[in-house]
Design a protein around this nucleic acid. Structure first.
Length: 529
RNA sequence: GUGCCCGUAGCUCAGCUGGAUAGAGCGUUUGACUACGAAUCAAAAGGCCGCAGGUUCGAAUCCUGCCGGGCACGCCA
């Protein structure tokens, strides 16, 4: 098989001839092209074989020329894409469930940036809503000031879990929670003060986790940021004649669209998630005039986003066509849904710590003299965790499994990082030599590596078009795999001088692609590990 | 009940707009550190691509039905 194959069945139909004959005829008539070494028919297929030397000269040459910019494009030049990701509910602890939105969004940010878009990463933190009323109610009943001082996160978590446990037996609690949220919305000073404290405590903790993950945001406008604009939004909906009262609540009817109504105000007058999201969408469009707005949110909210977008459409916002829900599958635990309320939550921070500890152990065993072990252990442990998530199609559910997370062999980030580190190791011994002749790279393993390297821009493009970082992740596995084969088959340092120079250039190009690719996933590439 | 998503090797998953003999990793068995780092490489075993129809020269891929699993379906986010 060649680098490209052309099936001749369709032509066979048109010309009423056997596809084998068509392939043979075409091979005869095909004009010679310097890029292809040969074009040969094989049954009903026409195979194009690229000229290995030319492909190597071009590919490796381009990579070395562009360096860190190799793979980028100007597809999104002059366009802005707004990404809504992570968006943790800060009344709850940061669970492993939030990891998905965070790292998928982070990667899509980098991928779009590489495609030339101006990106705005928004952490739409869940710092408003009924859950804060519940938290306040819980604090009223069982809160402990001393505990809140010394171990704030765990204490808030306990309160949250206890509230829902006790609420099962005492439905009055739910009403109490809603009551506190209403007070919060009405500006009650005591409620506001508690809310502010809970918010500050949680946010500080969340920022610590983001730092460990290496994730950043351009904008931290949470739900509470839009409080003052909510009335205006509802008034605008009303002015368009879209607002209806139903069972005491204010809604936008979506019967025509075949969907349940979208609630904007509860019976008690308090607002809902949709009210804030609607406001946020309009605000974001006014502020950034986005060409695309991506919402990296779980698949369980698919209907919700269809409703939200439907309301925007009814409001006559043509730009709603550029809004897109980017769903991802749920993380389950022991086959069941992970629930903060039931306390069956795996803390992201614990998972990070475990992964980093394991990386530390492996380093102690395999590379005890490594400088800055702690930093490398973090890069590897966190990388493994991120890659484990990004390497599969985001729509698939994940059953959280410690054994799987803690496996650093095979198709993992450490595998890719290891290939990168080995290249760096060789290049430390022998830096790139000037005057190399890339046309010498025509061996089987060299060609396989060159060939996969040439496909990097394509991988980024696909990942961007589909909003699926997994295309980049899987691509990097291919690169690392081809490199590993090459590495075991072809000596670099001990090769004849001319070949050695060319191979040094080849591995340097490989190093560049691995580093560029990993960075698109939000994974670091240590030079030693 | 209705709608949406998923179903590929023992396990976890690739398979782009239908195209050649369906591919990886883990696990299992075997081989390779006196060549640049063995977190690696090489090899073997392992498949009615959930089931049944249909469209097509050709289907894991498209259509229909069924089975199994997940999610959602008005006062949470």
């Amino acid at each position: 098989m060649g680098n490209f194959a052309f099936p001749c069945f369709k032509l066979a139909k048109i010309h009423r001839a056997a596809p084998q004959k068509i392939a043979a005829d075409l091979a005869e008539k095909m004009p010679t092209d310097p890029l292809f070494e040969k074009v040969v028919p094989m049954g009903p297929y026409l195979n194009f074989y690229a000229d290995r030397s030319k492909l190597a000269e071009y590919t490796v040459g381009e990579i070395l020329r562009w360096g860190g910019d190799f793979g980028k494009s100007d597809e999104g030049k002059g366009k802005t894409v707004v990404l809504d990701y992570s968006a943790p509910n800060i009344a709850k602890p940061f669970g492993i469930g939030h990891l998905r939105s965070t790292i998928i969004g982070n990667s899509l940010y980098k991928i779009h940036a590489a495609l030339g878009y101006k990106c705005v990463g928004i952490n739409y933190i869940g710092d408003w809503g009924t859950q804060f009323g519940k938290l306040i109610a819980a604090y009223q009943h069982w809160g402990d000031e001393a505990l809140l001082q010394q171990d704030p996160i765990n204490h808030l978590y306990e309160l949250y879990v206890r509230f829902h446990r006790e609420a099962e037996a005492d439905p009055g609690l739910e009403a109490e929670g809603r009551g506190w949220f209403k007070k919060l919305e009405d500006g009650d000073s005591y409620a506001t003060e508690l809310w502010q404290r809970f918010r500050d405590i949680s946010l500080a903790e969340f920022k610590r986790v983001y730092a460990r993950l290496g994730v950043e945001f351009d904008c931290w406008h949470g739900e509470s940021f839009y409080n003052k604009m909510l009335d205006e939004t509802i008034a605008a909906v009303d002015a368009l004649g879209l607002l209806e009262q139903s069972q005491g609540a204010w809604i936008v009817n979506l019967e025509e669209e075949g969907m349940p109504p979208c609630l904007l105000r509860k019976q008690d007058g308090a607002t809902l998630y949709a009210t804030r999201d609607l406001t946020a969408a309009i605000y974001r469009h006014d502020t950034w005039g986005f060409a695309k707005a991506l919402y990296v949110v779980g698949v369980d909210q698919t209907l919700y986003f269809r409703q939200l977008f439907a309301v925007l459409k009814k409001m006559g916002k043509p730009w709603v066509e550029n809004c897109q829900h980017i769903p991802f599958g749920m993380i389950r635990f022991n086959g069941g849904k992970m629930s903060t309320r039931q306390g069956s939550l795996v803390f992201l921070d614990d998972v990070l710590t475990e992964a980093i500890d394991l990386a530390t152990e492996i380093i102690a065993e395999k590379n005890p003299d490594l400088p800055n072990k702690e930093e490398v252990a973090r890069q590897v442990g966190v990388g493994a965790l991120i890659f484990g998530d990004l390497s599969n199609d985001r729509i698939k559910d994940i059953d959280f499994d410690w054994d799987q997370v803690m496996d650093f062999s095979g198709e993992t980030a450490p595998y890719i990082q290891y290939a990168h580190a080995r290249i760096c190791s060789i290049l430390r011994k022998a830096p790139l030599e000037p005057g190399f002749n890339l046309s010498l790279l025509e061996g089987e393993y060299e060609n396989a590596l060159v060939s996969v390297l040439s496909k990097f821009p394509e991988a980024i493009e696909r990942a961007g078009a589909t909003c699926k970082p997994s295309f980049v992740a899987r691509y990097l596995i291919d690169v690392a795999k081809e490199f590993s084969r090459f590495y075991h088959q072809c000596p670099v340092l001990n090769a004849p001088p001319a070949v050695r120079a060319a191979r040094l250039a080849l591995i340097d190009a490989t190093r560049q692609v691995l580093a560029n690719g990993l960075s698109l996933l939000g994974i670091e590439a240590p030079e030693e590990m």
